[in-house]
Design a protein around this nucleic acid. Structure first.
Lengths: 223, 223
DNA sequence: CCGCATCCGTTTCGATACTG
DNA sequence: CAGTATCGAAACGGATGCGG
């Protein structure tokens, strides 16, 4: 945007770069790994192709994202965050924390994609008790993610992992249900809506991702 | 904005509320205390009155700001952050951290106001070594601020304080110079561009606000 | 003066069609 | 698949007006 705030203030300067509509959502989607133009487009409903190419251009010039040519046979372009771009993670994280209470469980017509669930899990994992170390393969809906815990850091990326220490599988809607507490980990395991394998046990899993213990304590059929 | 992202994601929900142009800058200015309509207008160059009243309306409906009638004789309205609004501080803080490197020392035509300097000092104070406890009266340019340190928390507000433990006075431009490291605390004190009084000594002052030790180490006239 | 509503020229947005 | 071209609709920015 050529409209800058023109203030000698770090907040205004930051917003000059990532304060435009869509910009931070693009960053959010790229936090889990590189994406192609159309992948981004699909993840950002209502956004037009013009918008996306404009934003990607601006973010590239600002050094936040970089486009790389994928090697053949997948000869196409992928967009990835630069190191500077990854440094926006605390901003996204703070926004996610603040926006958490705004998530109303009901709401139809709101897109629910695996990436959002994965990011929420990542955000919680960063704040939860530090795990020892290890890799977790997380399957949410059709997508697969790798969470790497080591030295008090958590990294999350799209992708497969040959030999993870543990594996988790859950549907997209159940992932959100677990996050919001309307589905209990124990109950999800019993009904096989959540599958755990490897070293990870239920209590450790819940702590690892800071999941609430249960929905309403003693009201199983709270409608 | 009636244009919502319509995604079931806390980041998107947060941006639906505070992602519009100007919104976060309004919050930033209110972090230091309530302001009147025209005060905000003056702090936000290029912003029109229409924009401001729209944004204030949206932010009020979202529960981020609240307008309160000031008691007579100053019968006018002031806008203040709600508790929910203050919870955006980590977002502003993360943006300030990320935007810090974008601040180029030179740049004319960039507004430099005391509030920005005070906010930057607040941001650094939060990350610096925890001070014991006490109140500091900080005068930047024409404005006065009160920093309250206690129990590992730092609060910063516009306003006077009758009997602070320490007092600091500096011009607006020198405040930025101290922050960016082009002006050394020691040198500023010697030349009386920075005035300290009360219990606060130079080294403690520098640590309290995480100020850099000096500009370029051994190049006093680096041009 | 303060808080806001109205008007207007310009920019930006969102959707679609189209090209390499 | 990766964009560019185009167009109507909306939003922005600035100026002005008007009731307190």
């Amino acid at each position: 945007m050529s409209k800058r705030y023109e203030q000698h203030c770090p907040v205004a300067q930051a917003l000059d770069v990532v304060g435009e509509r869509w910009a931070l959502l693009i960053v959010r989607n790229l936090l889990l790994g590189p994406l192609r133009f159309t992948d981004l487009l699909g993840a950002l409903p209502k956004m037009g192709t013009r918008m996306l190419s404009d934003r990607l251009k601006n973010l590239s010039e600002a050094g936040v994202v970089a486009s790389r040519e994928l090697p053949p046979p997948a000869s196409t372009v992928a967009y990835a965050l630069t190191e500077r771009g990854f440094e926006l993670a605390p901003v996204i994280s703070a926004l996610a924390d603040w926006g958490g209470p705004l998530l109303t469980p009901g709401k139809r017509a709101e897109r629910r994609d695996p990436d959002s669930a994965a990011l929420m899990l990542w955000n919680r994992a960063q704040k939860a008790k530090r795990p020892p170390s290890g890799n977790v393969r997380l399957e949410i809906g059709e997508r697969s993610y790798v969470f790497q815990f080591r030295a008090g850091e958590v990294r999350a990326q799209r992708g497969e992992l040959a030999a993870p220490d543990s594996a988790v599988a859950v549907s997209t809607s159940d992932a959100f249900a677990l996050l919001e507490g309307s589905l209990d980990v124990r109950r999800a395991l019993d009904s096989e809506r959540l599958k755990l394998s490897g070293q990870l046990r239920a209590p450790a899993f819940r702590e690892l991702f800071g999941l609430p213990r249960s929905s309403e304590g003693g009201a199983p059929h709270a409608r």
